[in-house]
């Protein structure tokens, strides 16, 4: 173990990567898992909250105010606060991470629903759709591209925040960054930083691809 990085220590030692491939893969998987879980739970909260805010306009400002309040609290402070109740657990990490998805996701759910053309709504009503049927078969599918745009922003944000959870014993790739800082050894820092950026870029492009496949009509709009 290298305890102090001298000025001669190179930024990056490739041989370290070779020795730690298994751990790197494990942390990468954990990083993706913590992110995916946070986005999934975030959506389970944000879709009903967004639909509610869309139908009851007066509820929208207090909902965004609360989500904005959570979003403003620095991540380390929020995780620190939660450890007092839920300890150094995945639950603590997830509560914190989910809190940061809400503002982005709820805003996009509401914006997506607002973008549904009134004519389409009228037509659905004329065909005898109940408001529940209209929500699931008309409004949410048409709002989907905007919601997915929110999912992309939230995913990139959460991948960054997962690194901070290394301070409460989780962290995915962030664990390498923390390890590197504590040992003054830059190679794991570079590995953790580069891989988390690559993960964010890959997730963003993957979600963009998903949007193209699932909503071909939004792609055609560009040429129309």
């Amino acid at each position: 173990m290298i305890l102090a990085q001298s000025t001669e220590e190179p930024f990056f030692r490739p041989e370290w990567v070779g020795r730690n491939l298994d751990r790197i893969w494990e942390q990468l998987v954990e990083h993706a898992y913590l992110t995916g879980l946070a986005i999934a739970i975030g959506l389970l909260i944000s879709i009903p909250a967004g639909v509610f805010a869309y139908r009851h306009r007066r509820a929208y400002p207090p909902i965004t105010w609360f989500a904005g309040f959570l979003y403003t609290i620095p991540s380390l402070a929020l995780f620190a606060f939660l450890t007092a109740y839920t300890g150094l657990t995945t639950l603590t990490a997830e509560i914190g991470l989910v809190s940061y998805t809400l503002l982005i996701l709820i805003r996009n759910v509401v914006a997506g629903l607002e973008g549904v053309p009134p004519d389409t709504r009228e037509a659905a009503r004329g065909m005898g759709y109940t408001s529940r049927q209209m929500l699931w078969r008309v409004e949410l599918p048409l709002a989907f591209p905007v919601i997915l745009a929110g999912i992309r922003v939230a995913t990139v944000t959460i991948i960054g925040l997962v690194t901070v959870t290394s301070l409460i014993g989780k962290g995915g790739l962030g664990a390498f960054i923390l390890q590197g800082i504590q040992r003054f050894f830059s190679t794991p820092i570079v590995v953790g930083a580069v891989l988390s950026v690559l993960l964010a870029v890959a997730a963003d492009l993957g979600l963009l691809g998903l949007q193209r496949v699932l909503t071909p009509w939004s792609r055609e709009k560009k040429w129309a």
């Binding site: 990139v156 991948i159 960054g160 925040l161 690194t163 901070v164 290394s166 962030g174 960054i177 923390l178 590197g180 800082i181 003054f184 830059s186 820092i189 570079v190 953790g192 930083a193 988390s196 950026v197 964010a200 870029v201 963003d204």
Partner: peptide, 12 residues
Amino acid sequence: AIPSFAILGLAL
């Protein structure tokens, strides 16, 4: 795309 925690790590 770069996490602020990673920026801090690289700055060290």
